[in-house]
Simulated assay, not measured.
Amino acid sequence: MTLPAVVLITGASGNLGAKLAAHLAGQTRLVLIDRQPRDGVHTADLSRWGDWIKHFQGVEAVVHLAGDPVAYHDWPDLLGPNVDAMLNVYEAAALHGVRRFVFASSNHVMGGYQDGPPLPITEDLPPKPGLRYTADGAERFSGPYAAAKLFGERVGQHYAAVRGLEVIAVRLGWVWRGINRPDQLPADRGEWFRQLWLSDRDFLHLMECCLTAPLPERFLIVNGMSANSGMRWDLTVARTQLGYRPQDDVHRPA
């Protein structure tokens, strides 16, 4: 499938955004936005409506990766980057006639199933935002972060129904920063997080699928993990609706 002629990536200086921008460079025209300055990136605070919206002119697809990525942060840290910015980017896309919008949601939207029966976690289950886990030697809770991601999904459903955007909300797994290999993952996160692993190769392939696949409806939610042996996350929708073909497995390093 052919990539959109112009793709805008928010959060382009972050872990996911920088990896995606490097992968797409030379394949399509990129418009890159982030709060952090970097060569080729437009600097903007997306939580404040401003003249940065001009960069959406002529854009065919938006991949919204911007936001505070720390899952245990509370509302004072999250309201600006994860709620206000998200709302502004949806509106900027709609105002400029963007066709497709890929929203980086999170596995934390379904984190409440961690302690439930060992059944498949599919996209049509009722959301259970938030989970408790250990990170950096401390007990953490992702409730506010997960709730903000769920809100972003619901906003996307609204913009698809009312404003005509094609929206894909991807409940992304665990893409470790830098060298993203199973042997680099922090040991204190446990098996639940290992089963969430999403390799760089599979992440980039999934994003290409999100940008190119024809959609049966204007709004779609998909799980986004690698093909990890024994995981509960069901990838059927991503496979059948987007053509996603993950190649990596956290238990079988390439």
Rank of each mutant, 00 (worst) to 15 (best):
N228P: 01
N15P: 03
L211N: 05
A12E: 10
R245I: 14
R245H: 14
V98T: 01
S199N: 04
P117A: 15
I121C: 05
L220D: 11
L87K: 10
P4L: 11
T28Y: 00
G14D: 12
W233N: 05
L3S: 06
N180L: 02
Q241A: 14
A147R: 06
A85G: 09
Q114S: 07
V175I: 15
E153K: 01
R245M: 14
T134M: 03
Q247L: 15
V70D: 14
L235K: 09
H158S: 03
L24I: 13
Y90E: 01
D84Q: 15
L24W: 12
G116C: 09
I121N: 01
L242Y: 12
D249H: 03
T212C: 08
C210S: 07
D77N: 13
G173E: 02
H158Q: 01
A161W: 00
W174S: 12
A25I: 07
F193E: 14
E139W: 04
E166W: 07
R48K: 13
S47W: 05
W233M: 13
R38F: 02
L79W: 08
V102M: 03
N82S: 09
G40Y: 12
G156M: 00
P81R: 11
G112I: 12
E123R: 02
V222Y: 03
Q247M: 14
V62W: 01
V98R: 03
V7Q: 10
P69W: 12
F101I: 00
N15C: 13
L119C: 05
L196D: 02
H42R: 14
D200Y: 04
L242M: 13
W52F: 00
Y113K: 04
Q27E: 15
Q114T: 06
G130H: 12
V63F: 11
G50H: 04
E123A: 11
H96P: 06
P120G: 07
W192R: 07
S47D: 03
Q36T: 15
H73E: 12
Q114F: 08
V63A: 04
V41C: 07
A169L: 02
F219A: 13
P253H: 00
V170N: 05
H55E: 13
R154C: 01
Y90A: 01
Q241I: 04
F203W: 11
